[in-house]
Amino acid sequence: MAHTVSSKKKLLSRIRKIKGQASAVEKSLENESDCQLILQQVAAIKGAINGLMKEVLEGHLREHLGAKEISEQQRNEEIEQIISIIKSYLK
């Protein structure tokens, strides 16, 4: 998975940001903060997760499905795997 290796620093930065946001939600819940603040934090986490998914998915599609050296059968298998992952993500 060279696309995740080449973007490793950027992806890890995104994950660390998400971890920080999740910690902030936990603290808000522990402190019984206003629900609007908690909702706003949850929305920010969702946006960050969506950004991470987009980044990894785009790299995967470009590197794996865009590869000229893979067979039609391999490409179809990759497509089915990605469709399954996207369906699971969108549940």
Rank of each mutant, 00 (worst) to 15 (best):
K19N: 03
A22S: 05
N50F: 09
I83S: 01
L37M: 13
K27N: 14
R14G: 09
G51N: 02
R16V: 08
A24W: 01
I38L: 01
S84L: 12
H64V: 13
I15C: 06
I38W: 01
Q40A: 14
G59D: 11
N76D: 12
Y89E: 03
C35L: 12
S6V: 15
A22V: 12
I18L: 06
L61V: 15
E30Y: 00
I85Y: 00
E78Y: 10
E63A: 12
E30C: 01
K91M: 10
I82V: 14
G20R: 00
E32S: 09
A2C: 15
I70S: 00
I79R: 07
T4P: 01
Q81C: 08
H64Q: 11
K46T: 14
A43Q: 07
S71R: 07
S23Q: 13
M1E: 14
I83T: 08
G59Q: 07
R14N: 13
E78C: 04
V5M: 12
I15N: 02
E72N: 10
S88H: 14
T4M: 12
Q36N: 15
A2Q: 15
L39W: 05
R16H: 07
V56H: 05
I15D: 02
I85W: 00
C35E: 06
V5C: 06
R62W: 01
G59P: 10
I83H: 03
L12V: 12
G66I: 11
A48L: 04
K19L: 05
K19M: 04
T4R: 06
R16M: 11
A48T: 02
I86N: 02
V56C: 07
E26L: 15
S71M: 07
N76M: 12
S23A: 13
